[in-house]
Amino acid sequence: MAEITLVEAVDLALAYEMQADPSVVILGEDIAKNGGVFRATQGLLDKFGPDRVRDTPLAESMIGGLAIGMAIEGLKPVAEFQFMGFLYPALDQIINHAARIRNRTRGHLSCPVVFRAPFGSGIHAPEHHSESTEALLAHIPGLRVVIPSSPVRAYGLLLASIRDPDPVIFLEPSRLYRFAKQEVEDNGKALPLDKCFTLREGKDITLVTWGAMIKETMAAAEVIVKEGIDVEIIDVATLKPLDMETILSSVEKTGRCVIIHEAPKTGGVGADISAQIAEKALLSLKAPVMRITGYDTIVPYARLEKYYIPSVPQIVDAIKKTMEFA
C-alpha cells in the first residue's frame, strides 16, 4: 500500500470511480492534458480519453450549467473549479438549478454532480485563491458540502460524493494537498457522508473543526495533552447536512467546546454549531462555547496571509481559557 498525498488521493479516487462506472465524466479548466493546476486529475486523460476527461472553455458558470445538464441526462459529472474563488460565477447554476432540480420536478429528475474546488489560504497564491466561504454553500437547501482533511478521507469521501444521488460541493483544502502522506488502500470503499469523524477521543474538551484547520488543531492538541488535558477532536467533514448528534454527544460528555475554522467568523458554520449546542446541550456546558476563526476580513495576499489563519498558540489559549472557566 502506497503512502500518498491528499491531492494524489483525489486523483486515485477519480481513477477508481471512472474505471468502475462509465457514466463518470470529469470536466474543468486545464484538467485534461495538464492534469489540473494542482495535478488532481493527473493521468486521467491517458487512461479514459478525451470524451470523459474534458477541458472546457474558460467559463465557470458554463462548467456548472453543463454539468447540471449532463447529470440530469444520466451522467455523473465531476466538475472542477480551479479555485473556490472562481466558483462564484457558477453560484447561480448551483443554487438556482443544481440544488433544486429534484425538488422542482417532485423527484422526477435529479442532479448527481460533484463540484470540486480547492479552497483555503496558506499557499502563497494571488488574490481570490484563498477563499474559505463554505458557509455560503452550507446555507443552501438541497446541497451537500463535504470537506476532507486527510488523504484517506479525501479518497473515501470523494467516492461517496460521486456515488451520492444529489449535488455535492467537495472542497479540498489546498494547504493540505501535499502536507502529509498517508497510506491509502485503493479498494473503492467509500466513507460515510453526513457523519463527523472523531479523530481523537478525550473526556475534557471537544474541539470541532474541518479542512485545513485540522492541522493547527492537532498541533494544539499535542501541546495541551502534554499538560494533562484530554481533548476530543471532531472533524466535521460534511458541513451540510450537519451531524450534530456526534458533536452534541461529545459536548454532553466533555461539557466544553472550542470550534476552530479558517472561514470568517460572522455567519460561519461555527456560529450554527455553537447555536445548536446552546439550544440542545446548554445544561451540559461548563463553559461558553468558543470560536477561533479567521477574521471578518478579506484574506490578505501572500505576505500577510499566515497572520490571518488561526495559530496553534491561539487555539491552545482558547482551550486553556475554556478549561479554566469556572
Binding site: G65, L66, G69, M70, I72, E73
Partner: peptide, 20 residues
Amino acid sequence: FPYSVPVGSQPLHAAGVATA
C-alpha cells in the same frame, strides 16, 4: 425538462444534455 425561470440560464443545461 422543467420550466426554467432564471433568464438565459437553461441553454447551458441543453449544452450539457447535448454533451451527454
